[in-house]
Amino acid sequence: MQTSTAPASATTTSVGLRYGLLTGLVSVIISFLLNVTHLEQSPAKWLTLVVLIVGVILAQKAYRRANGDFMSYGQGLGVGMVLTAVSSVLSAIFSYVYVALIDPEMPARILEKGRADLEARGNMTDAQIDQAMHWTAMFVQGPALVGIALVGGLILGLLVSLITSAVLKNPKPEFE
């Protein structure tokens, strides 16, 4: 009986799930801290994008390492999208739970700051500001918030994954 000591290659799904859970958890912690400190509208909100980019890069590198230092563009994209899907679902669930149970006044704060920002610009009439606030209100409350978090996360993750896969790919030579 012969036993193999070669490590089993990782799948795009297994690596994407593992790193998606980690990336999602870190993003949720950062979002929670920003929300609790009422900094959800500050430039610090871009920190979750940095977490996503780092998570995708680390996941793609881990996949490549586990597969003999080879990763096709499609495999890199697959790892990134599985990671993004998992992370986006966690973030969307967190957003809903946070607004529904922990801080129901958060949408009102966002709308209030949005109105103040539009008024400070001084280039819109009151009717235009009211219309903008009406549309904004539809996207920062309830199920729309979850949908925006999910779809926005997936689109952002797709863009990140397309770029990082192109940079980190190392396909197997065809004639070996």
Results as ranks from 00 to 15, higher is better:
residue 71 M to C: 04
residue 78 G to C: 04
residue 95 S to Q: 01
residue 150 L to M: 02
residue 120 A to P: 02
residue 20 G to Y: 07
residue 75 Q to D: 10
residue 83 L to W: 05
residue 17 L to E: 12
residue 38 H to L: 06
residue 112 E to P: 04
residue 18 R to G: 10
residue 14 S to C: 03
residue 94 F to K: 03
residue 31 S to G: 06
residue 157 G to K: 04
residue 85 A to I: 12
residue 138 M to T: 10
residue 97 V to M: 08
residue 162 L to D: 08
residue 27 S to I: 06
residue 25 L to S: 14
residue 120 A to W: 03
residue 21 L to M: 14
residue 129 I to T: 11
residue 113 K to Y: 12
residue 34 L to E: 05
residue 115 R to P: 02
residue 86 V to A: 11
residue 72 S to I: 05
residue 154 L to Q: 01
residue 156 L to Q: 15
residue 152 G to Q: 12
residue 114 G to S: 15
residue 96 Y to W: 13
residue 133 M to E: 14
residue 55 G to M: 11
residue 119 E to Y: 10
residue 148 I to V: 15
residue 152 G to L: 09
residue 99 V to L: 06
residue 7 P to G: 07
residue 45 K to A: 12
residue 24 G to H: 06
residue 105 E to D: 13
residue 90 L to T: 04
residue 41 Q to G: 03
residue 51 V to H: 08
residue 122 G to V: 05
residue 37 T to I: 00
residue 100 A to V: 05
residue 24 G to R: 06
residue 165 S to L: 05
residue 11 T to W: 01
residue 174 E to P: 03
residue 103 D to T: 03
residue 36 V to M: 07
residue 157 G to W: 00
residue 146 V to P: 00
residue 154 L to A: 03
residue 11 T to L: 02
residue 76 G to V: 07
residue 99 V to D: 09
residue 27 S to G: 14
residue 121 R to D: 15
residue 110 I to F: 13
residue 171 P to K: 11
residue 107 P to E: 14
residue 168 L to V: 11
residue 21 L to S: 08
residue 176 E to S: 06
residue 77 L to I: 05
residue 68 G to Y: 07
residue 174 E to R: 07
residue 82 V to T: 08
residue 166 A to D: 09
residue 54 V to F: 12
residue 148 I to N: 15
residue 51 V to Y: 10
residue 54 V to K: 13
residue 8 A to F: 05
residue 143 P to L: 14
residue 87 S to W: 04
residue 61 K to M: 14
residue 159 L to Y: 03
residue 95 S to E: 01
residue 20 G to E: 13
residue 150 L to S: 04
residue 52 L to F: 11
residue 113 K to P: 04
residue 26 V to C: 00
residue 70 F to Y: 12
residue 54 V to H: 11
residue 76 G to R: 01
residue 92 A to Y: 01
residue 68 G to T: 13
residue 9 S to Q: 14
residue 55 G to Q: 13
residue 109 R to I: 05
residue 131 Q to M: 15
residue 35 N to I: 03
residue 78 G to A: 05
residue 72 S to P: 01
residue 26 V to Y: 02
residue 7 P to Q: 13
residue 89 V to R: 00
residue 175 F to C: 01
residue 15 V to L: 08
residue 70 F to E: 10
residue 46 W to T: 13
residue 138 M to E: 14
residue 63 Y to N: 11
residue 91 S to N: 10
residue 163 I to Y: 07
residue 154 L to I: 05
residue 140 V to R: 07
residue 67 N to T: 03
residue 67 N to V: 01
residue 167 V to T: 09
residue 47 L to Q: 09
residue 4 S to W: 00
